[in-house]
Design a protein around this nucleic acid. Structure first.
Length: 225
DNA sequence: CCAGACGTTGTT
DNA sequence: GTCTGG
DNA sequence: CCAGACGTTGTT
DNA sequence: GTCTGG
């Protein structure tokens, strides 16, 4: 699964990696370095803009489908299983029409070790910024509406399989365009993008349980234990 | 027909 | 034990 | 994901 | 909104 991640890459590098126009801006303080991003927080997403390019936006982590009666579902929607995302009522519309990239430069998984859990920090081997395969939706109630998002997960492979049974889908840069293409709605064309992921290019190391507390947000979270 | 659910992970 | 909040 | 809360009435 | 269960 994927329930915590980091994004501390400088904003200019993030924009360059995902081809986001500098003019399409999110509040300046939203792209400050973050080492312990948790569900329910607003996170950066990259999606197709109406003009045909890519835009950066903020969305709450935990997808709220447009038909939801409540602004906060009673069940967990931070992750969507690749095996069922195309069929689940909560995700299928977004899977067809509202896919997004979720910029990150590392994520955490907790490895079960007997009676306790050891958190690990996972990055690309070159430590560069990457994209989780994400979905977004818009919710509008009586209060002002908001965007929300979820990260797609799949069975762990490569180094991840030694730590945990599931992992987030990390897209190859060559697949960004197809992933963001709203005209691409066939499951048979979308699934290969998830299977063609970067699980073989990851590295991992154990960190201390300092990261466990959502109150801890600094670089100490990624220090080797 | 209407009412109610709509999810993931991990653990047992 | 289970739900909510971050 | 983990941490932390988990409640009511009445009074200030 | 759409599917499942009764």
């Amino acid at each position: 699964m994927c329930g915590r991640f980091s994004l501390h890459t400088p904003e200019a590098d993030i924009r360059a990696a995902f081809g986001v126009e500098p003019s399409m801006s999110v509040p300046a303080d939203q792209l400050q370095p973050r080492y312990n991003i948790t569900p329910s927080q607003d996170i950066a997403v990259v999606r197709s803009s109406s003009g045909g390019g890519r835009e950066l936006a903020m969305a709450r982590w935990g997808l709220v489908p447009g038909w939801s009666q409540q602004a906060r579902p009673k069940f967990s929607t931070i992750n969507a299983r690749m095996e069922s995302v195309a069929e689940k009522p909560t995700y299928r519309a977004a899977f067809r029409r509202r896919r997004c990239l979720i910029p990150a430069d590392g994520f955490y998984e907790w490895q079960l070790a007997g009676d306790h859990k050891i958190p690990h920090y996972i990055q690309l081997q070159d430590e560069s910024v990457f994209a989780f395969a994400g979905l977004w939706d818009h919710w509008q109630g009586e209060q002002p509406g908001f965007d929300s998002c979820a990260i797609i997960t799949l069975p762990a492979s490569g180094v991840m399989a030694t730590i945990h049974s599931r992992m987030p889908a990390i897209l190859a840069a060559a697949d960004y365009n197809a992933w963001l293409d709203r005209g691409l709605a066939d499951k048979s064309e979308i699934m290969p993008l998830l299977e063609h992921n970067l699980s073989g290019e990851l590295q991992a190391y154990a960190v201390s349980n300092y990261v466990n507390s959502p109150k801890h947000t600094g670089a100490r979270c990624i220090e080797p234990r």
